[in-house]
Design a protein around this nucleic acid. Structure first.
Lengths: 230, 230
DNA sequence: TTCTGTGAAATAGTTCACAGCG
DNA sequence: CGCTGTGAACTATTTCACAGAA
């Protein structure tokens, strides 16, 4: 194992690699659970649907080294990737907006079990205040600064109506939260030092429909509607 | 590439472009609503956070042409991008699994309003059958083939427990659905002609935590050897 | 003039292919 | 042997920079 887990040259890791690490981690955890001690780049590549050389490059890129003729140590991989992704610590979460989506997220234990415990729920609806959901009492958005400090919140999840998303983001950022996960279709703008990722259902579906349309058209040999007769 | 690539206007659109089109569309709709008749690549680039040349290349790539000295016609852009993405038609959706997440999705009107009407809800829990949710009666998974045909379902949304995801996907594909949106953390495998996209909360959060950790380390100057990649 | 459309350069990412370690 | 680690080739994508249309 590496001598200095917390002082790694992570600045050089490419976006493409970072996007694949959670995928690798998922399979590695499965492999670890079923007792596999080591794994080859080929096996991990097969599971993840990428090229073996890509696996080896990714791992080399985050400073992980395997054993020639054998492969990589599964437990070591799990540990090192976790460290690189920052999963050796907890990132307490606040969910802003306790509508349908907020409730679904609060009840989803994949969050807490993976190191993102939902420590607070806030909403603007007075009727909800004091209600308990998934073991957490719903509080008012206006108390966010105190809540963020009290719970050491690291991540804000935006599950508000779109119209309130930017406002909610502003309050979160002012309260000191520097990572946001935005579930609204609204793009939000924040300072450069705040990390934002959006999960937009409509975007996903639109991309899906593009590829679906294309493969359907290809299969049926139909001419494609790009004749801009309009 | 090579000769067999043939005459396929849409087939030539790059993945990177496809991923940006929904983003452009979102801002273009806003611009249209506030009455802007035309937009420059620079303005659209600024809104979307990309390089103006990228905007122009993307648009040229899907056959859209602007007017030199002026810009692009907003309404025309909205229309053409919609056509390319396949949004000039509806894509009826079935949600498989009516737990917390399934309910949240069923109640989310961003789906229906953007051309992805939720036409069916299925589950394996007999207690739910016949219950109405968001105007749709919950049916049993076993009836999927008939449901898919009856409602001309184009997209299946997987909102089941992870353990059932693959099985649900299989049933959907057998029933004739060729686009899947997977909300479970489970990777699912299907035939090559089926489009799958996954929305995994844990993956998003892990990527977020990587970048958060990195920027925090950079700011506090903890001796992290951030390489200058230029 | 302003802003598109696009060669050409720069950069990023992937994959091949093989030397060499265990 | 088998499998990693990586130079080098290849492919994809971004960005510059500028000619030329409106």
């Amino acid at each position: 194992m590496n001598a200095s887990d917390d002082h790694r040259a992570i600045g050089a890791v490419s976006d493409a690699t970072v996007a694949r690490l959670p995928l690798f981690l998922q399979y590695l955890v499965e492999l670890a659970e079923q007792g596999d001690a080591s794994v080859s780049s080929e096996r991990l590549a097969e599971l993840s649907g990428v090229n073996p050389a890509t696996v080896r490059r990714d791992l080399a890129g985050i400073g992980i080294t395997g054993t020639r003729g054998v492969g990589y140590d599964v437990k070591y991989l799990v540990h090192e990737i976790s460290v690189v992704l920052g999963l050796n610590q907890e990132w307490p979460v606040v969910i802003v907006g306790v509508g349908n989506l907020g409730r679904a997220l609060a009840n989803y234990d994949g969050l807490t079990s993976r190191g993102f415990p939902v420590r607070a729920l806030v909403d603007v609806d007075d009727a909800l205040l004091g209600t308990e959901l998934a073991g957490v009492v719903i509080e008012h958005v206006r108390d966010l600064p105190a809540i963020v400090e009290r719970e050491a919140i690291a991540v804000g999840v935006l599950a508000t109506p779109s119209a309130s998303a930017q406002q909610a983001a502003d309050v979160l950022v002012e309260s000191g939260v520097t990572s946001l996960l935005n579930f609204t279709p609204e793009a939000i703008s924040v300072d450069a030092d705040v990390q934002v990722r959006g999960v937009d259902l409509a975007t996903e579906l639109q991309i899906l429909s593009f590829y679906q349309q294309r493969s359907t058209a290809a299969r049926s040999g139909t001419g494609l509607p790009l004749e801009t007769t309009t």
